[in-house]
Simulated scan of single mutants.
Amino acid sequence: MTEKECSHHKGKRKKLLRRICAGLLIFNLILLLLLLITWAILQPKKPRFVLQDATVYAFNLSAPNLLSTTIAVTIAAHNPNSNIGIYYDKLAIYATYSDQQITYYTSIPPVYQGHTDVNIWSPYVIGTNIPVAPYNSAALSEDATAGSVMLFIKIDGRVRWKVGTFISGKYHLYVKCPAMITFGGQSTGVVVDNAVKYQLAQSCSVSV
């Protein structure tokens, strides 16, 4: 085979490779466009959360401004999408009072939530001798004396959306659930063994 014929065959191979690469690129662009159109049409709705109940085992404020808390909560998470699944990644739940965190983070295991599914989680939020800001300590004592303390159960984490075989990147999930804890003559709780259980059924605010 002459040098001219070799060059001719090499040129054909290069053209063929360029065409294959161009075809793959066009195919991927079309696939991406279809996924984006599908995503826009489906318009994924953020999940809905309800704080069903809270069982208080310990809620003790001691000097100097130290708070110990043990609360078991039941939270329902609902995926309202009929065509989109949700991956919950790295979820952490905790309690706050007056914007101050009063328990440690408790991890909720990662889970995939199918179309319109509901997941129920029953974690504990616990804090032992957590330092409380002096002004919050005074306010907390006043609230407890008055017979009611407003806590917030919060969830921080990451979610991903699943449409068909497509899985999105991670989005920040923030959930905030009000939990009114009552004491003394105003208590709405029911004594269960060594704890007090409050039926709350509170809708939570959700941002993604």
Rank of each mutant, 00 (worst) to 15 (best):
H172Q: 12
V149Q: 02
T145V: 14
Y174M: 09
K154S: 10
T74W: 05
Q101L: 04
V192R: 05
K176Y: 08
R160A: 14
I126T: 11
T165E: 09
T106L: 04
P80K: 03
Y104K: 11
T103Q: 04
D156V: 06
A144M: 14
Q100K: 06
T106M: 08
A92M: 09
T96L: 09
T116D: 08
M180A: 13
S107Q: 14
V118N: 05
V159Q: 13
D99I: 04
D99M: 08
V125P: 03
A92C: 12
A92G: 10
V73K: 00
M180Q: 14
H115M: 10
I84T: 12
A144L: 07
T74I: 08
T145A: 09
R158P: 00
Y105S: 13
V191L: 15
S168I: 04
I108R: 05
A72P: 05
W121G: 01
N129R: 14
G189Q: 03
L91V: 04
Q101H: 01
D99F: 04
L91P: 07
T128R: 13
A77Y: 05
L140P: 00
R158K: 15
F183E: 00
P80Q: 02
G114T: 02
V175W: 01
P178Y: 02
V73S: 03
G164R: 07
D156S: 07
T96V: 14
A146M: 11
I108A: 08
D143C: 04
Y105V: 11
L91M: 13
W161P: 00
L151F: 15
I108G: 07
A146D: 11
T96M: 12
K176S: 13
D89P: 03
R158S: 14
T128V: 12
H172P: 08
P178E: 04
I130N: 08
T116Y: 10
A76Y: 06
A95H: 01
H115F: 14
V73I: 15
Y88H: 05
K170W: 13
I84V: 15
N136Q: 09
I167C: 11
H172F: 11
A77C: 11
A146K: 14
T128I: 10
A138G: 01
N129F: 11
S98N: 12
T145R: 11
H78N: 10
T165G: 10
Y174I: 15
W161Q: 06
N129G: 07
I167E: 15
Y105G: 08
S137M: 07
A138T: 09
A77I: 15
Y104N: 13
G169E: 09
K176M: 12
S141E: 11
F166G: 01
I75E: 00
V132W: 03
